[in-house]
Design a protein around this nucleic acid. Structure first.
Lengths: 339, 339
DNA sequence: ATCGCTGGTCGAACCGGTTCGATCAGAAGC
DNA sequence: GCTTCTGATCGAACCGGTTCGACCAGCGAT
């Protein structure tokens, strides 16, 4: 069931079948019909492998999957789903590379063995060895998130600095004057995760600008750590009345910690942050948050990458998104102060 | 930078390089060293595509990704992560197929274009066209979940019937006599999702056996539907004091609905179910539930599939898992009855 | 000294497509 | 009626590996 078989049955040469399929040369209607009939009868589909070998295109995109055992967020899942879907729309498949160890190994395989035409990276660090590797190798890639030197690469990202600032602004307008920031884990922060750093920057700047007391805390990506973080926050400053978080996975623990300490949300304590919309509406009370447009981001990433594959010389394009803060139920006016 | 280039620089034939790499024929130490030196110098890696074409193996596994727009659960994400990781451990990559439309199209592409050596299916229905298609095509595959006719295929699955039964048993032992069951969405149920049907069976049988009142409800896979389901449950039988759910995505809404109606968990109302352990610990109070061993299931799926690829004639193997119910905080003794 | 075996290597065919250049028939141009 | 052009098709080379059969040298056995 290869192209030779089709050619034989249709009484033409292999190249004629190929041209009939690709349309790259004109074929007489009669011949085309005969070939098509044979193809339909046998249910023939050309081998992707053979096609890739001769054409030099795999029509596959690589995605470096976040390290296993890490705590996946809804956001990541939405990225993957939308990447796959968007790629499928363009006739591309998505190949996942396990990011074992430092995440380099799987990526190198994809690239060096030429399994994919281009790559999408997520979980970007300010200083990211994977980005350097791909850039140096001249391999086409796009990142979801951006490094500390973003001008030379292609990416789609959230403006974490601005988003956290918006959350602080909202809280300040509600009268809060002592605000905590719950960042992601110490491990991720020290690894240089860009979102963790950029959101901290946004928090510190906003607090300074508004002249409010802001204390930042790192927090593991799980509910237990979230609960623990609440303890640390209230121990450090019992007068804290609100928090901003970018730690979706810890959110359940944050809520639980507040409840355990008798702080009602939003009566006694307000919570805001950045999270997938689905997650924000799953908790009680629903989270006032900037909803990560993960699906749009995945789609944009694919579009940027395919644009690069089609015309390798286009200058780098970037897309920086700043979704609005959706007002829900977890933030309210600051309680009367004891000051 | 292909094998011919290596051969030329090492002063040997292409086949000698190939044998040096694969070890399938003996090569003199001197020659081997010379070839290796050239390879190291140039950083040569054989093209996966060319290798696949001639060897007939892509060393890639296909995964049909759950339909887009559906609500992904943590479970699914863990499946994917563990599949990728387990596959990587055996030198395989994972290719995602978008399940657009009925999910057949992407699968057909993977199979007909021979992009993958084998496939993993999830979100299985009792009567599943994809399974029939693969079985008929004689294409190697494994399912996470099983159809209504499970003997002839290879799968790993949870024993939903037994797990729901365990939840009911636990509630009955706590004194509950009026129990609700929150199933997955009407759409999924009518599509024949096996977990939805098998868990309903388990619920009905257990209630009948213990002689307790059990009412089953379908519920959309989102928090809002969960909230709505609580309304329906309490309207249908205000005396309900506990529920069992397999609807992870609705859980937040279930909690919210109960809170809105003044039912404290677990004081007034107990909640149990089947969920990813991470999700179960994220909510407040933490969910007493059978924790889905998603990571193990993904690993087992890969092992079953690779076993099949290695020895195509092995008889079908199945793995049915029954994780224990983890006692957490969401279920307690039934409140004093008004009866 | 001869035979046979074996370890090491090479050349060629093959996997299943794509694509270039050449060929040929028929139509158009003059 | 002869050239020229165009549309349709074919054969061969190529993509980058793997693998089979053949060959040759060197060694041990007789």
């Amino acid at each position: 069931m290869n192209i030779g078989e089709i050619a034989r049955r249709a009484g033409v040469s292999r190249s004629t079948v190929s041209y009939a399929l690709s349309g790259k040369r004109s074929i007489s209607p009669a011949t085309r019909a005969r070939i098509q009939a044979v193809i339909d009868e046998l249910g023939y589909q050309p081998s992707a492998t053979a096609r890739a070998l001769s054409s030099g295109e795999t029509r596959t995109l690589g995605l470096v999957f976040p390290p296993a055992g890490s705590h996946y967020t809804d956001m990541q899942l939405d990225f993957i789903g939308s990447l796959v879907e968007a790629a499928a729309g363009f006739g591309y498949d998505v190949l996942l590379a396990a990011a074992v160890g430092d995440g380099q190994q799987g990526l190198r395989r994809l690239v060096a063995e030429r399994r994919v035409d281009g790559a999408v990276l997520m979980e970007i660090r300010l200083d990211d060895a994977r980005v350097d590797y791909l850039a140096e190798a001249g391999f086409p890639f796009v990142t979801i998130g951006r490094t500390g030197e973003p001008e030379r690469t292609r990416w789609v990202d959230l403006d974490y600095t601005a988003l956290v600032r918006s959350c602080v602004t909202h809280l300040v307008q509600l009268g809060h004057r002592r605000i905590a920031f719950v960042n992601r884990s110490e491990r991720l922060f020290h690894a240089g995760y860009e979102s963790a750093h950029r959101s901290l920057t946004g928090f510190e700047r906003a607090c300074a600008e508004y002249g409010v007391v802001g204390t930042a805390h790192l927090c593991g990506d799980d509910p237990a750590s979230g609960e623990d973080a609440i303890g640390r926050i209230l121990a450090a400053d019992p007068g804290t009345t609100a928090l901003v978080t970018v730690n979706e996975a810890a959110l359940g623990g944050l809520y639980r910690g507040l409840a355990a300490r008798g702080r009602a949300i939003p009566g006694d304590f307000s919570v805001t942050g950045i999270a997938a919309g689905r997650w924000a509406t799953a908790v009680t009370p629903q989270l006032t948050a900037a909803d990560v447009p993960a699906i749009e981001m995945g789609r944009v990433a694919v579009e940027l990458l395919l644009e690069l594959l089609a015309t390798p010389d286009v200058p780098p394009r970037h897309v920086l998104l700043t979704p609005p803060v959706s007002l829900r139920a977890s933030a309210g006016p600051a309680p009367a102060s004891d000051d």
